[in-house]
């Protein structure tokens, strides 16, 4: 009776408790729009200037624009549902992704550095990204789209906890 179907639903990862800030959706939308606009404008200008290749250039520009707009409409909402984070006394727990979802867990005792990064666009939306690194070259955890005040408090709290932990965290 211990077939594969039986054990499949034994345990699951529960979603982390906190959602990211709602402004993150607008931030992601703006990012996607900007990354779509640049190639579309370049292709459009080239299409206006270059008579022989006009049709193909404008067609590509149109395709990129449609794909970009679709992604802008579709992904940020999905990301907002998936991207969640949680910091407990013992660990940092983050879920990210869309088609490929990723759950990352790092124990507090193994955290080495805590960084807060704010890009120009993030500053505009008063958002921050907190990056937590461990001694592993592949174990970094990023929490995107946090309110900047919340991110600062979180980074301070994490730094305090990790400073109190002895050892070199390897």
């Amino acid at each position: 009776m211990t077939g594969e179907n039986a054990i499949r639903d034994e345990v699951r990862l529960r979603p982390p408790r906190n959602a990211v800030d709602e402004r993150a959706v607008t931030w992601w939308r703006t990012q996607l729009l900007l990354t779509t606009t640049v190639p579309v404008v370049v292709l459009g200008v080239l299409g206006a200037l270059l008579q022989p290749a006009r049709f193909w250039l404008l067609l590509t520009a149109g395709a990129v624009a449609v794909a970009g707009l679709a992604a802008t409409a579709f992904f940020p909402a999905w990301w907002f549902r998936v991207h969640r984070w949680e910091v407990t006394e013992d660990a940092v727990y983050v879920r990210t992704g869309a088609f490929w979802q990723e759950w990352r867990i790092a124990p507090m005792s193994r955290i080495q550095t805590v960084d807060t990064v704010r890009g120009p666009l993030e500053q505009f939306f008063r958002l921050s990204t907190v990056t937590v690194t461990t001694a592993s070259s592949k174990g970094a955890i990023r929490i995107e789209g946090l309110d900047h005040q919340l991110a600062a408090d979180l980074a301070e709290r994490l730094t305090r906890i990790t400073q109190d932990t002895p050892g070199d965290a390897t």
Partner: peptide, 27 residues
């Protein structure tokens, strides 16, 4: 899915376990 997570939780005690929840057991 279930077996792997249970394995990970057992391999490193107290790390993964707080974030696991039992789901409707079928069998």
């Amino acid at each position: 899915e279930g077996e792997g997570l249970a394995f990970a939780a057992e391999a490193v005690p107290d790390l993964l376990a707080p974030f696991l929840k039992p789901t409707g057991v079928r069998d």
